[in-house]
């Protein structure tokens, strides 16, 4: 029983998933009040520049290195309704592919003007926007050394814990996507495309900032199976 649009927990091409996924089947139960409720966050926790990663860590008058981009889109539910008040947190590597993190082993330089994280709460029409720089690709140990496609991590809180989602946005046209084992852990090839931010030339600005469009859909209350029906249903 699997949801083919969601990744397999254990996927042999992604080595660290082997010891970090259960061997036994999960226990399917009906949602109750603990799944159909969740924390809500208010605008009060957000500073004005939290969604501008080119400003929120940099020294006054300075900018991080790299191609400046907007990443924007709508958060929707499975019926296509736009979702307001969704807290989005993002994090990413700098333009050279280095994370501001003590456990990042790479000897690429940190960018003193780039922290690499941002926050936003969707507006009443479900819209969000971040300004940032395009992250670099970087190598990591998997089956030998492999390269991660350029990506931005996204974390979202819907209105109930069932909708809690952590995912990654990739960049349209990146040739590293098709060999990425994390992308390929999703059985449904069409669903993999849902993770790709599309170049959005309507969102360029001042002939120097590129735009990418990335819409996100959060699940509903029902257990939905697009390929395999749950036994007994």
């Amino acid at each position: 029983m699997i949801k083919k649009h969601q990744p397999l927990r254990k996927f042999h091409d992604y080595k660290s998933s082997i010891s970090r996924s259960p061997n036994k089947e999960p226990l399917w139960i009906n949602s109750s009040s603990s799944e159909m409720s969740g924390p809500l966050f208010s605008e009060k926790i957000i500073n004005k520049n939290d969604n501008d990663l080119t400003l929120n860590f940099s020294k006054i008058g300075e900018k991080p290195l790299g191609q400046e981009i907007f990443v924007h889109g709508f958060v929707k539910d499975e019926n296509g309704n736009n979702l307001k008040n969704v807290l989005i947190e993002i994090w990413q590597a700098n333009a050279g592919g280095k994370y501001r993190h003590q456990n990042d082993p790479s000897n690429i330089k940190l960018d003193e003007n780039f922290g690499g994280c941002g926050r936003f709460i969707t507006s009443s029409d479900g819209y969000y926007i971040f300004k940032t720089i395009e992250p670099g690709a970087y190598p990591y140990p998997n089956r030998g050394t492999e390269w991660r496609p350029r990506h931005i991590h996204f974390s979202l809180f819907g209105s109930m814990f069932l909708q809690r989602l952590i995912t990654q946005m990739y960049f349209e046209g990146d040739p590293l996507i098709k060999s990425c084992p994390m992308v390929n852990s999703i059985p449904d090839i069409n669903a993999r495309k849902l993770l790709i931010g599309r170049l959005d030339l309507s969102k360029t600005e001042n002939e120097k900032i590129l735009g990418y469009r990335f819409d996100i859909v959060l699940r509903g209350k029902e257990q939905t199976f697009f390929e395999n029906k749950r036994e007994g249903l």
Binding site: E78, L194, L195, V217
Partner: peptide, 17 residues
């Protein structure tokens, strides 16, 4: 119905965000 966006690992550097 729209397909819900697939999950991806939070990775080892989730603390940043």
């Amino acid at each position: 119905k729209l397909i819900d966006t697939p999950s991806q690992t939070a990775g080892p550097f989730l603390h940043i965000g």
